[in-house]
Computed example of a mutant assay.
Amino acid sequence: MTDTDMHALVTGATGFTGGHLARALRRQGHQVRALVRQTDSPAARGLADAGIELVRGDVSDADDIDRAVAGTTHVFHIAAVYRSANHPDSYYMAVNRDSVAHVLASAERHGIERVVHCSTCGVHGDVADLPATEETAFRPGDIYQRSKLAGETLAQRAIAAGAPVSIVRPTGIYGPGDLRFLKLFRGIQNRTFRMVGAGDIAYHMSYIDDLVQGFLLCGSHPGALGETFLIGSDDYTTLNGLVQEIAATLGVQPPRGHIPVAPVMAAASLCETLCRPLGIDPPLHRRRVSFFTKARAFSVDKAKRLIGFEPQVGLAEGLARTADWYRAEGHLRGAPTGIAA
């Protein structure tokens, strides 16, 4: 295959990870198609401006998936519903499990050369023996993780049946364009953040450019066929270490003080009970509190060994790039420092 004859479908391209991946594929000269729910949304228009073909549809609809897959050579299935507490469990399963079945069926029907499925390191849950590897036991702890494991299980079955599938389990994704860590940055800058629990729990980040590198390798490297890879930074840290690095990036003193886990978890449970019947996302929920309680640290040695994956962006540099983007977008105080993205 030459550098220009891949025709790739990316699901979830209006999101953070899928958007970066779709643009990276386009910069490499590939034809890129994105399945989007609304072709007139700002995110979709940005994809179109980057030369990416838009196909309207929903990943939970088998017919929409089939229309999007037809005529492509590669499928990168990135779309997922993440940690929102205002969706029923059935919605998580429809998006994170059933869409995988639709993608795999269409890929077989249309003779797709490679399917790259995005799972999550969260299928391993709270890791006991650090660092975890791809062989570490599954311990999903919430509906997001259970639904992602259900989707990955379908992909693993397809691999066992001979389908050309690769699976990626990203660690905690961050970088310019991501808003999931903005609340943490703001809390540290405003000195309102307090650690829940001791903060010595392990945490593993994945800078977006490194993660995209992993996806691209899984879509092209012969050694990726039929394999599952944890993809993330070279090293992991602790939540205390992450907070200290962010504080250093922002030029503020690290926050002090810790809040016991139990009352916060109780408050989160109460918020869910009150908000769920109203169909609104509670300001605090148990899956968010679990960020402070579950150990996540992984080895990326398999990806290095089999497909040549090499993380390029260390934590300090990645956080600085992210903070610069937050400042440029008006999300944080202060002027950007000029670190290149």
Rank of each mutant, 00 (worst) to 15 (best):
I167E: 00
D178N: 12
A150P: 02
V123K: 05
G199K: 05
T136P: 02
V168T: 13
A202T: 10
A202F: 09
I188Y: 00
P164H: 08
V196L: 06
L179Q: 13
L179G: 11
Q156G: 09
T136M: 04
I167D: 06
I159V: 13
G197M: 08
I201T: 08
F138Y: 06
E135P: 04
T171H: 06
G141N: 14
P170T: 10
A150V: 02
E152T: 02
L179C: 09
G151D: 04
A202Q: 09
I167Q: 01
R191S: 14
N190E: 15
G151A: 07
P131R: 01
R194F: 12
Q189Y: 10
T171E: 06
K148G: 10
A202H: 10
G122M: 10
V127Y: 10
S147F: 07
Y203R: 11
V127P: 07
T153Y: 04
L149N: 00
A137F: 02
V165E: 02
G151W: 02
L149P: 04
S166H: 11
R169V: 11
P164N: 09
D178L: 06
D178W: 05
E152Q: 09
L179R: 13
R157H: 15
F181N: 14
K183R: 15
D126K: 13
R139M: 01
L179W: 11
G125F: 03
G199M: 03
G187F: 01
G177H: 00
Y144K: 08
G197R: 02
G177Q: 05
D200F: 00
K183W: 14
